[in-house]
Design a protein around this nucleic acid. Structure first.
Lengths: 343, 343
DNA sequence: TAATTTTCCTAAAACGTTTTCGTAACTTGA
DNA sequence: TCAAGTTACGAAAACGTTTTAGGAAAATTA
């Protein structure tokens, strides 16, 4: 009820009959304050319901303990993207443990007119910035990365900047090898549209196929947007109409896989008895669905945690921290959507 | 490369040979500054790459243009919850248009020890707070709501505080009525565990059933956690084993509905030919899945927007804004999972 | 005892803004 | 021509911290 004024160091100082400086140092546990005074100050602060004024502190120290997160642009799905949502969730948890907060970076602000991402980040004085799930080729993103704020990117590497990426090469290799070992020889691959992730996956796909001695006809490889259920459905239809149709289809992500399921069901075919499929990501519903998806489960938890650790490290030890790429392996969830053809 | 020092009002003042006060006023477009001076100051500021120091401004004005978002606790699914993620997405967009930023509220910070949500919100000096997808009965949440920061809650009403809620009463009514009109008389209802949302849905369910002259045997009504696929699967199995089994099952959310689908498929039954089902929420995959879910699509966009408008209104016009509950209707997506039994 | 060191505290400046109040210069009206 | 009003600007205080540079008193040493 009583909307008392916020208590400041000055108030505590008055109550304790010491100087403001002493109070500040006592609360920050500096060495040159006596134990008794420290105790007194802390107790009084507690009793008076004191908490620091973030703005004043930030103004003075030039540290906000706030991290900016660039997480989507209009064309993307942002928060609703299950895979990234989980990475961010883990990232957030980790930085909060270390006393940081998370604020979204954007660029539409009415007051000061248009702000670039970098301008926004500078304005808010973020200690560091994390970037995920955006169009990395946008000049504005590049500008942000090149600004002099510590930065970590997720699933994309910028030269000379820290990045956390999931191991798409290993992922595709494990997945394809598993499918091969299950006896499949006619394997189609619907992949995502152009991005760093897609590229490494495609390369790994062809490389692994070659190593296994697999022949991949051109018509077995199609391109579709990420998370494009309808597109994946169409692509699947095309594959099913081929005279020599594949026995297994790989999808760029689990969401797209559902498009494949739709197409297959509409053809009256059963999974995996008539045709096998495999996804990527290991999103919640893919693991709960029956038949459970054969998919590469990305270690979103580790991805987020590593990103947090790396970023905070470069914030707190700017000189000794070198930018580095961390590759996080996923693991194969065998699931039930790939049929064993040989034993 | 040149990490030049940040330019401040003082620098601009020096460059323009006017006082700091004048620069500040010119940039804020105050009336008592001549047009020529304003132009000069603004051009110089622009040329020097000036942008305001957020911390200093916040310290002085006690306004941060930052909104706190409390969005989950450990037991919940937070960001990965598709329905809420979409609401937040829309909320975020709206507040950004108005020049606000969004920061997560949490309570684990190492530096100052444990902080309650309210303490955190006060520390960061949020202009307002939005709460969604949390355990509203936690004392700490209550404390935050009762703190003197403008607040809006989503899908839960606190006495005397603004809230945006989706119209669960109408939703269930429309859904049940539709199913009735399709000819179903034996309708089961798996509902979520205790919450404000669940309560209004259950009431609406029984009320509508009564109005329609429907008899609902007790064994047709089961309780399951929200988004609990496995639980919903078990519950569905129970229903399918009943001697007089329902012709249609309602689920608390689309995610749980997938559990039902699993159970039904494993029984060798088809949807909707052998049994009909209906979900709630209208999450992405439910709309893309085949058969497309019969479900109530929540207007997440409007929910988020309304929440943003309400909150900003009560921030900017604290006296004239009265706390109010806004009820946002969803709409029925007829989909393909409820079979027509009569014509 | 005197010199030195250590312990504990303070005054004051600074961070970058906003805002109040004052005032000089110019304009207006009678 | 003079009083009153208007316009355009500046000086200075304030917001709540941190930090530097001292310095008085107490403890230690010689």
């Amino acid at each position: 009820m009583s909307a008392r004024k916020r208590v400041s160091l000055k108030d505590i100082a008055a109550a304790c009959k010491v100087s403001v400086a002493t109070v500040s140092k006592a609360l920050n546990d500096q060495a040159d304050i006596g134990q008794e005074t420290k105790d007194l100050v802390r107790e009084t602060a507690e009793a008076m319901g004191y908490f620091p004024n973030f703005a004043a502190k930030a103004l003075k120290t030039n540290r906000t303990y706030n991290i900016g997160l660039l997480f989507m642009d209009d064309s993307q799905s942002g928060l609703t993207h299950n895979y990234f949502a989980r990475v961010i969730e883990s990232f957030k948890k980790k930085i909060e443990e270390k006393g940081y907060d998370l604020t979204f970076i954007s660029n539409n602000r009415s007051s000061q007119g248009y702000m670039s991402y970098l301008a926004h980040a500078r304005y808010r004085n973020f200690d560091g910035v994390a970037i995920a799930c955006v169009d990395f080729y946008k000049p504005e993103v590049e500008e942000l990365v090149r600004g002099n704020i510590p930065v970590v990117t997720i699933d994309h590497v910028f030269n000379d900047r820290s990045a956390i990426i999931s191991d798409n090469v290993m992922g595709i290799k494990d997945l394809l090898t598993y499918i091969y070992e299950m006896g499949h020889r006619k394997i189609a691959y619907i992949h995502g549209s152009d991005s760093a992730v897609t590229q490494s996956r495609i390369k790994s796909f062809y490389k692994t196929a070659m190593d296994l001695g697999l022949e991949i006809p051109d018509e077995y490889v199609l391109e579709v947007e990420y998370r494009d259920t309808v597109g994946a459905q169409r692509a699947t239809e095309k594959l099913l109409e081929l005279s020599d149709r594949p026995t297994c289809i790989l999808y760029p992500d689990d969401f797209a896989t559902f498009g494949g399921i739709n197409a297959i069901k509409q053809k009256g075919l059963r999974i995996p008895d008539d045709i096998s499929i495999a996804g990527y990501d290991g999103i919640d519903i893919a693991m709960k669905y029956s038949p459970q998806f054969t998919t590469i489960v990305q270690d979103t938890d580790l991805l987020g945690r590593k990103a947090a650790e790396k970023l905070i490290d470069s914030i707190e030890n700017p000189r000794t921290t070198l930018s580095e790429q961390v590759i996080v392996p996923g693991h194969l969830n065998e699931g039930e959507t790939v049929k064993r053809l040989i034993s």
